[in-house]
């Protein structure tokens, strides 16, 4: 029983990280039709800069940890905003080319990170408490899992509030449904494009810092690895659906954890099988509205 609880808790933690990456991907795709291969790079940059700052302040202090979260989110947001404004937007409405530039950018950025921080994973540590465990019904749950889950929930809640309560949010929701009608109402939808990239980048950067604590290391490939699962999550959840991304993140991560433990390390296959099943039965994903 305690194993089940442990797997469930760590699965939720992993799902929380997937969600932090997938939420932005899904919003960007939903609004702009862009598959953003550079999203993993936002995450890696957040993780690296967060770790650099944490070391400056003191990696085992709470101040260091908190600052690293802020810096990670900021780094992701700025990088994403610049990417959208100066690269992606130049190729307005040319979806394949937009994918291609993000691929090139990801390649160049990962290589640059390799050059700066080296290709080997750098093992990191945070405040003592994060590495300790809390006993829940006989299972020793690593404390960083709680932080990760809370952060993802906070991000989910903030994005939902932003989308529901602000005019920008309303424009984004409307644009995900029907971009050209939004423009026909006199709204310059490109501002919304930059905005979703910024929000997505911030979530990914934050996710990067949390992922580095969850896995215990940072590396230039951290983001690229997580990006693959985030892609699968967004397809399963339904492209453009934030809630779908949240549900699919948890589903995929739990499935992976349990299959890895009980079915002899076959977690990755279980995920791909799930993806194939969803595509065969409902190609638009769990909560996807329409086939684009």
């Amino acid at each position: 029983m305690s194993t089940v609880i442990l797997l469930f808790a760590t699965g939720l933690g992993l799902g929380a990280i997937y969600f932090l990456v997938a939420s932005g991907l899904s919003l960007i795709y939903g609004l702009m039709g862009v598959l953003n291969f550079a999203h993993g790079v936002f995450l890696s940059l957040g993780a690296f800069l967060g770790w650099e700052v944490a070391q400056m302040i003191g990696s085992n202090t709470w101040a260091g940890f908190a600052t690293s979260l802020v810096v990670g989110a900021l780094a992701g947001a700025v990088f994403a905003a610049v990417t959208e404004r100066f690269i992606v937007q130049r190729l307005y409405n040319r979806h394949i080319e937009q994918v291609l530039v993000t691929v090139g950018l990801a390649l160049a950025a990962v290589a640059l990170f390799d050059g700066i921080w080296g290709t080997d994973p750098e093992f990191i540590r945070g405040p003592q408490w994060l590495a300790q465990t809390t006993n829940i019904a006989g299972a020793s749950i690593p404390n960083d899992v709680f932080v990760t889950i809370s952060a993802a929930l906070a991000v989910l809640l903030s994005i939902v509030l932003f989308l529901k309560k602000t005019r920008f949010g309303m424009v984004i929701r409307a644009g995900v449904e029907n971009r050209s009608m939004v423009m026909a109402l006199g709204i310059d939808v490109r501002t919304a494009f930059t905005l979703v990239f910024t929000i997505g980048g911030a979530a990914a950067g934050l996710g990067g810092v949390l992922a580095s604590h969850y896995f215990g290391y940072v590396s230039p490939l951290l983001g690229q690895t997580l990006l693959l699962y985030a892609f699968i999550v967004t397809v399963i959840g339904g492209l453009g659906s934030l809630l779908g991304a949240a549900i699919a993140s948890v589903l995929v991560a739990l499935m992976q954890q349990f299959a890895n433990f009980y079915l002899d390390g076959t977690g990755d296959f279980a995920v791909v099988v799930l993806l194939a099943l969803v595509l065969l039965t409902k190609p638009s994903g769990l909560l996807g509205r329409r086939q684009v």
Binding site: S180, M183, I187, D188
Partner: peptide
């Protein structure tokens, strides 16, 4: 398109195109 609309054009498209989720 958005600048055309801002000049003072109201557009009522075929199939209405209301935002279903709003």
């Amino acid at each position: 398109t958005y600048k055309v609309a801002r000049l003072g054009v109201g557009y009522v498209p075929e199939d209405r195109e209301v935002f279903a989720g709003l």
